[in-house]
Design a protein around this nucleic acid. Structure first.
Lengths: 205, 205, 205, 205
DNA sequence: TATGAATGAGTCTTCATTCAT
DNA sequence: TATGAATGAAGACTCATTCAT
């Protein structure tokens, strides 16, 4: 009993994470979380007070994870081109490990203005230096004639577009093509290199 | 009075469309639709039976619109490269006119399995010949050495990724950068050509 | 059916009034109101949106009733002593007609700070002139040596104390003494004159 | 640790008393009591079984305190008029020390019929002799023509009315007049003598 | 003595839907 | 065609209480 007891809070958290990932905040009810976790609905509120707080604790952890992953992936000792390659690859790998995260982020940020504002503040304060250095280094490459004249935001948008979309539309793609999870994983791995290739080609002067 | 009466069904439809676009199916209530349309709540159900049916009639019309737009954009008389260029550009232009559609589609298809299944059946039956001809023509270009060896699905995924993402993340981007609607429209127009450029460069052998 | 239908909103209101009077806002549940009114709980919210709004609509009406009764009871054409006599008597008579009102007011104003503030604003704005005239007239009587030197607030407090308390403690008194409703009514009528007597005697110089 | 432990029961009791006084039985939750006492929520129930029992133990103690204070205040060796004066003054002084008690008593007795019944039984048994002696002595004074013909209950009601009301409406009065606590205390002290005066004047033949 | 975990019952509220008119 | 009334089901949340430890 003790093991179950000690696990219950964790179990609720995991169940909630799974359901929030699948259906988003609005479509997941605390009743359902409780049912799937095998406990009373009141217990969900006992541990997390409100559905909102429960969600935020999950959301924030995921945001932190993703943010730190992005921040630490940048290694200034390498040549710029190599760093870009790594950026795409590492970002893509994070998506591989958290395939449902992109949709969750999109869904909640687009659906709930309050959440968008909070997330914005979080993102705006932290990675400014990273962004500035990236901008500087890019400008140097452009000046040297090694990269086409392009804004940093444009590059980031390209990376985001190429890397996020496969994961976001995965369920739709699978439903439409009957591709198995295994085959999809193979295709995804290929896609990673394709994305690197597309980005690199897009930058040659 | 009669004009209002005849218009009411249409007005409800338009109001519902706007609200569904803004907040999705789940977060839009029939009460709200009725209130914004300026009619009785029961009238919404009188015309459309259920919220689900009301949504489907809108969703289907939008899907049809988008599908037909995509289908008719392909003109076999032009050279393949030109056709691709047109594909990206036309698809992008449709997004410009319906900027909220991508997220609505994503959201509802990913959120509601039933909806995904229905939509799949609709998409699977119709455009097979188009897809097959595209595949054939692409293969010919590859054989002629004019295009790198790449699957048609890969190309479509690239187009989708590049074209959908700017519109989907628009609100997030604007919140984070304080970019005005006008400036964003300018950036979007530039992005269209950037996307064409990226795709074309990605296909050179 | 139609009669019941048209009466339902009214019936809910009356039931709510009765229950709020008996047990106050907090101890009355919308479920109970619905049960006693013989309707679905949702209907209570259909007509009044929230429990709070339902209560306020009752509370405000009662406050208005009491306020207007107090305001219009003052007739400057009569001699001051006569007016005081009337004040006590009329105020007492209002209590006779709404015996549970004093407790409801006390309970909600003391229990809910928000309500107290709203009520304060309502009372502060309206009867200022009445209060000022009362103060003036009292001062004249004092100057003429017809009334002991006493503040208007002191007089009002005496009136309130004497007039409200019998009604507030009525249930306690009846439980303790087994006095019937009929006998109590007789005692109440006597008490009215007693209160007038006590006030008048308290004012002689 | 032991001291804290031994104090805990007392601390809970004191915290509960304070909260019950402030907000009454219904609006005070055991969760809140525990939080403010700085202990586990279960501990409240460990010591007092139920919220009801906890309240009753407080309520009863307060009732006892007030009752005994009233009983012992009566000194038959003094002249009747002096005793009455003392009655009002002492009762008023008890209120000064427990200003929130009147409303708590009223609220709980009027709100909870069970509580009213229990309290009634308690009050009925004990002070009968006191009441009877008071009645006798009063009658003698009336017979001697020193006091107007008046029932003992009428006198008690007058005392209660005059003495309780200022304390009960204190928060309302302060909100409406912005009178500070200090000034209110001064006014209260004056009111005590005013009440004695009013009662005495009301009794002259 | 003390507590963390757990629960059943109840709170207010919203919603899609139905039905008589 | 249109609507006011009504409802069942579900939502999030709170609370007093119990129990094993």
């Amino acid at each position: 009993m003790k093991e179950r007891d000690q696990n219950m809070e964790q179990l609720i958290l995991e169940t909630a994470e799974r359901l929030f990932m699948d259906k988003g905040f609005a479509l997941t009810s605390t009743t359902e979380i409780a049912r799937e976790a095998g406990c009373n609905q009141a217990l969900v509120h006992y541990y997390f007070r409100t559905k909102e707080k429960l969600f935020e604790s999950i959301f924030e952890r995921k945001a932190q994870l993703m943010l730190s992953a992005i921040l630490k992936m940048d290694d200034p000792s390498q040549p710029f081109e190599e760093r870009l390659r790594n950026l795409v690859e590492n970002h893509f790998d994070i998506m591989v490990k958290n395939p449902k995260l992109p949709f969750l982020f999109l869904n909640e940020l687009l659906t709930n203005p309050k959440r968008l504002e909070i997330m914005t503040q979080k993102f705006r304060t932290i990675p400014m230096t990273v962004m500035e250095r990236f901008t500087d280094d890019l400008q140097k490459e452009i000046d040297k004639g090694r990269i086409r004249d392009v804004t940093p935001i444009s590059i980031l948008l390209t990376v985001l577009s190429l890397n996020l979309t496969p994961f976001i539309i995965k369920p739709i793609f699978q439903q439409m093509t009957n591709v198995s999870d295994e085959l999809f994983d193979v295709m995804i791995e290929e896609r990673k290199h394709e994305n690197i290739r597309i980005l690199m080609r897009s930058l040659v002067p």
